[in-house]
Amino acid sequence: MRQPIQDQTDLTSSNTLGPKSKAQKFVTLKHADELRDIVRLPEFNRDTVLLLGGGSNILLMEDYAGLVVHMENKGIREIERSDGLVDIEAQAGEIWHDFVLHTVGRGLSGLENLSLIPGTVGASPVQNIG
């Protein structure tokens, strides 16, 4: 079930430096399957939508005049193990450091040097994570 759209939502706690700002429209994505409904909303515009994770790589200095989609979807699962490699799927709203701890806790190596980096898994392709 998709969360309701909120108007004039305070974003101050959604970016780590904390300047005051509001989103004209705001919705929380709790499950990946809600994305299909969100992109069909009349408020959704590919040119102005802001997909927001943990807020550690963004500075919101003024109100945002579009739709903000806050990625809170969680989940980590192993897809496949083959020839010493492990494919893992992590949802966009997973905290990056928690994801690293998850892999290390299962005896997997490769991400341990990327621990303590702020942000979410979904933001990792556009952040400076390794």
Rank of each mutant, 00 (worst) to 15 (best):
H97N: 13
G66A: 02
G93I: 07
V104A: 11
H31T: 10
N113Q: 10
D87L: 15
Q8Y: 11
L59F: 09
E78F: 12
L50S: 03
V68W: 14
I58F: 15
R106V: 05
A90F: 10
D10L: 04
S21A: 15
V68Y: 14
A23H: 07
L101D: 12
A65W: 04
V121Q: 01
A23D: 03
S124N: 09
L85H: 15
S109V: 14
E78G: 01
V104W: 11
L51K: 03
F44D: 05
G75M: 06
F99W: 06
A23I: 10
M61E: 11
N73I: 02
N128E: 06
L108T: 07
T28S: 06
G53K: 03
A90M: 06
V100D: 07
G66T: 02
I58T: 11
K25C: 02
E94K: 02
S124P: 11
S115C: 10
A65N: 08
E80C: 10
N15R: 08
D98Y: 12
K25V: 03
L101K: 11
H97V: 08
L29D: 02
S56P: 01
L60V: 13
D63F: 09
H97F: 13
T103N: 06
L11Q: 05
L101C: 14
E112F: 12
E78V: 07
I117P: 01
N15S: 13
D87F: 15
K74C: 09
V69L: 08
S82A: 03
L114T: 07
S21V: 11
H97K: 09
R77M: 03
E72A: 14
I129H: 07
N57K: 04
G53C: 04
Y64N: 00
T103L: 14
D63K: 08
V69Y: 12
H97P: 00
L60D: 04
I79W: 11
N73H: 12
Q127Y: 15
